[in-house]
Design a protein around this nucleic acid. Structure first.
Length: 280
DNA sequence: TAGAGCCTGCGG
DNA sequence: CCGCAGGCTCTA
């Protein structure tokens, strides 16, 4: 479900919880990503009794940071996860797996029907990269300086196709299937091009496109295709601005192109592009 | 470095 | 019933 713009939207809408004290943690007992059980004792150690100091993000990972504590809570939404700030009295939705009760009228609930997500404890501060999920994360294109030089350097020896490289979280953190397709369309690069074939200029263009489609999506509160909602339960409005994703067989929206959008499978993921205007 | 696997739900 | 889904991880 969520890529960088959606996760950032959740982060922002979670901010009202900053300053609240965590009173308790509840877990469903169901395992999450890779059948890993949620470490309830660890969550209690990291959060209970502490004041939520900040909600930060790197790529698709959210981090709940607590005042006067040495650990943070790491959250990844997988495909269908969501973090909601809801009234304590609201009935618990199906597939709720973690709840942080707060000293205010609302508490934080994590739900995830497919259980591909992650709620875990990681060391705080500079040591956060000791957690395996963060260890190899690449640069966040909206938080860090990422230029064509960096990207070109990272991929110029790769034998992979460019779509695969965009999805590699060790290079750019936060790009997912939708925005990879959208950025490639915007940069006029076919997803099947070998990464090492990209010129420095095309790398510049592609990185700019990644940032562009993400910033734009963020201003719309993210893309809701089926079930994405932010912490307040609001859907994003970006779906109607998608240029290629999900548009197989429809006309290319580039002025004067006249091509038809094709769907191919790359790395097991549906990939949409215009064979007419995206260079291969 | 493909491909399978992890899960549930939805739409055709 | 079948295929497909915004992600990641482990395996051959």
């Amino acid at each position: 479900m969520p890529e960088l713009p959606e996760v950032e939207t959740v982060r922002r809408t979670l901010e009202p919880a900053v300053g609240r004290r965590v009173l308790g943690v509840w877990t469903s007992g169901f395992p999450l990503r890779m059948n890993q059980p949620v470490d309830r004792a660890g969550l209690e150690r990291a959060a209970v009794g502490a004041v939520l100091g900040a909600v930060t993000r790197h790529g698709k990972y959210l981090m709940l940071e607590f005042e006067q504590r040495g650990e943070l809570v790491l959250v990844h939404l997988g495909m269908t996860g969501n973090l909601r700030l809801v009234p304590q009295t609201m009935p618990q939705a199906a597939h709720t797996h973690v709840v942080f009760s707060l000293d205010g009228p609302r508490h934080i609930r994590y739900s995830d029907p497919r259980r591909f997500g992650l709620v875990a404890v990681a060391p705080g501060g500079e040591r956060r990269r000791e957690h395996p999920a963060l260890a190899e994360l690449g640069r966040d294109p909206l938080l860090e300086r990422v230029g064509g030089r960096f990207f070109h350097e990272a991929i110029h020896r790769s034998k992979q196709v460019v779509k695969t490289v965009l999805l590699d979280q060790r290079i750019l953190a936060g790009v997912g299937n939708i925005y990879a397709c959208e950025a490639l369309w915007l940069a006029r690069v076919a997803p099947t091009v070998r990464a090492h074939k990209l010129s420095r200029a095309q790398s510049d263009e592609l990185v700019r496109a990644v940032r562009g489609v993400m910033r734009h999506a963020l201003t719309r509160g993210g893309t809701s295709l089926r079930d994405f909602v932010d912490a307040e339960g609001m859907e994003g409005a970006n779906a109607e601005y998608l240029r290629v994703y999900g548009r197989e067989g429809e006309p290319c929206l580039r002025r004067g192109c006249g091509g038809r959008i094709r769907r191919v499978v790359i790395q097991g993921r549906s990939t949409f592009y215009c064979p007419r205007c995206q260079r291969r």
